[in-house]
């Protein structure tokens, strides 16, 4: 613990000089202070506890990898939003929203209702249908959820939409992409922060997430996908929908031929639907037999 605190103090000192003016630098500083306070609270008056005022002995001893894993136990809501905005704006640069406000409104109404069952009420949820025939869906931190027109076309009723959105909402509540960032890009970003190469905070966040919206093309751990299936199915069921919406969509995707170009990116980033169905089957078994929800095929908004 002592080593950890020393490390934090050293890191704080090294960061505050070069990057204090930058938002991300400030974010990191705040994290460091938070961590220090946490340790103070849990450790009753350790005699030799170093604090931020302790002069750093040697800057060369900062291990950025360890620092990253120690510091970013969590992002604040503000940081999460900032990261989500950048990713979403980039994704929308690759593919715009379908120009159909009735469709977008409908998806927002259904999605917001499902998200209200997720327990993260502090998030401002936004949903959008992307104008591409690719079959896919995306979630960015901060509550930005995207479904492609190609996937939307596969849907038969509102319960299936609720299931798909539930899966993506579960990625946000599970902070899966934030964990991915923490694992892979953080070290580089910390380096950037320390050396103050980045011009402004937008650039800092962009450095954190990588090129464009490429984080959306990265594969999450398959356990994260299976977790999102389980949690998403439960969110949809809690919202009062037939719980079999998501499994039905997975069945429709499983029935598509492997060579279907609309699914090429989907299968780069997700386990095959057959594997997802099998994993979900293990978890569900007879547990949802008594749940009765609505499919709402009549109210489902159909697109051309």
């Amino acid at each position: 613990m002592k080593i950890k605190l020393t490390l934090l103090a050293v890191a704080l000192a090294s960061l505050s000089g070069a990057a204090a003016a930058l938002d991300l630098g400030k974010m990191l500083e705040d994290h460091i202070k938070e961590e220090l306070n946490k340790d103070r609270q849990t450790q009753p008056a350790p005699e030799a506890a170093p604090d931020a005022a302790t002069p750093p002995q040697s800057k060369q001893k900062v291990d950025l990898r360890q620092l990253g894993q120690t510091l970013l136990t969590g992002y604040s809501l503000e940081e999460e939003n900032r990261i989500g905005q950048q990713i979403s704006g980039n994704l929308l640069g690759a593919v715009p929203l379908v120009r159909d406000d009735n469709l977008q409104n409908y998806v927002n109404l259904v999605g917001n209702w499902v998200a209200q069952q997720s327990g993260r009420q502090e998030i401002t949820w936004r949903f959008g249908v992307l104008d591409t025939e690719a079959i896919n869906a995306f979630a960015a931190p901060g509550g930005y959820i995207f479904v492609t027109k190609g996937l939307y076309r596969l849907l038969n009723n509102e319960a299936e939409l609720a299931g798909v959105l539930g899966h993506e909402i579960a990625h946000v509540t599970g902070k899966h992409h934030l964990k991915l960032l923490k694992q892979s890009s953080l070290i580089g970003a910390l380096g950037q922060a320390a050396s103050s190469k980045a011009k402004d905070s937008d650039q800092m966040v962009q450095n954190l997430i990588g090129n464009g919206a490429e984080i959306m093309a990265r594969r999450l751990d398959k356990d994260a996908e299976h977790e999102a299936d389980r949690v998403g199915m439960v969110f949809a069921a809690r919202a009062g929908y037939d719980p079999w919406g998501l499994p039905s969509v997975l069945q429709d995707m499983a029935a598509l031929p492997a060579g279907d170009k609309r699914t090429s990116l989907l299968y780069k980033t997700h386990p095959h639907p057959a594997d997802r169905l099998a994993a979900l089957g293990e978890a569900v078994d007879g547990r949802l037999d008594a749940v009765r929800g609505k499919e709402l095929a009549d109210r489902f908004y159909r697109i051309r």
């Binding site: 704006g89 591409t132 896919n136 609309r262």
Partner: peptide, 22 residues
């Protein structure tokens, strides 16, 4: 069909108007 691949995503430039729309 107009697809969406990882190269499209990598090259994507921030679209503030579209984000505001969302």
């Amino acid at each position: 069909l107009r697809g969406l691949n990882d190269e499209d995503l990598k090259r994507a430039q921030f679209n503030a108007d579209e984000l505001a729309r969302m």
